[in-house]
Amino acid sequence: MSWLLSSLRVAAVAAVGLLLATSTTGCFSQKQNEGAQLYQTHCSSCHGEQGQGLRRLIPPVAASDYVANHRSELPCLIRNGMKGPVVVNGILYNQVMPGHPKDLTDAEITNLLNFVQQSWGNKNEVYTIREVSELLGPCNGSIIR
């Protein structure tokens, strides 16, 4: 009888552990993949599915020296867009990049930037939401919902 109780306890602990593991995964999986989803929705049509850009028209974000070297400018660039010449990986680009003045929160910009910072050969430091909010301050771009 004691082995039965012991077996039931082990099974109960395993079931609770499995339940916690799957419910925790469910809670965080959307946020964990939010940056990739936001990139797909807002960026990939121009910068490409793999961040490769479009020939000499639209700069890459994959293995991009610009992404690595302009960290403090990137949140405002996403919020307000960009126009005028820019050099990325030694190539001059001069197209308009639309911004997202009202549709992305600070947290979403953070997740989007962190996805780009860690994808396609980029190995850059990730952002915190606080950092992104502070960087958005000078361009009047902070949105918190």
Rank of each mutant, 00 (worst) to 15 (best):
V16F: 11
G17L: 12
A21I: 02
A21L: 15
T22K: 13
T22V: 10
S23M: 09
S23W: 11
T24A: 07
G26Q: 12
G26L: 10
C27N: 15
F28L: 15
F28H: 12
S29Q: 13
S29E: 13
S29G: 06
Q30S: 15
Q30L: 14
Q30K: 15
K31I: 09
Q32M: 12
Q32G: 06
N33H: 10
E34W: 06
G35S: 01
G35L: 01
A36Q: 02
Q37T: 01
Q37M: 00
Q37C: 04
L38S: 00
L38R: 05
L38N: 01
Q40G: 04
T41I: 08
H42Q: 09
H42N: 13
C43W: 04
S44T: 04
C46Y: 00
C46K: 00
C46G: 02
C46V: 11
H47M: 13
H47D: 04
H47C: 13
H47F: 04
G48R: 00
G48W: 02
G48L: 05
E49I: 06
E49A: 13
E49H: 07
Q50L: 10
Q50H: 12
G51T: 03
G51I: 03
Q52S: 08
G53D: 08
G53L: 06
L54I: 01
L54D: 02
R55V: 02
R55K: 10
R55W: 09
R56Y: 13
R56S: 14
L57K: 11
L57I: 14
I58S: 03
P59T: 01
P60K: 01
P60Y: 00
A63W: 11
A63C: 08
A63I: 06
S64D: 04
S64P: 10
D65G: 15
D65C: 15
D65V: 09
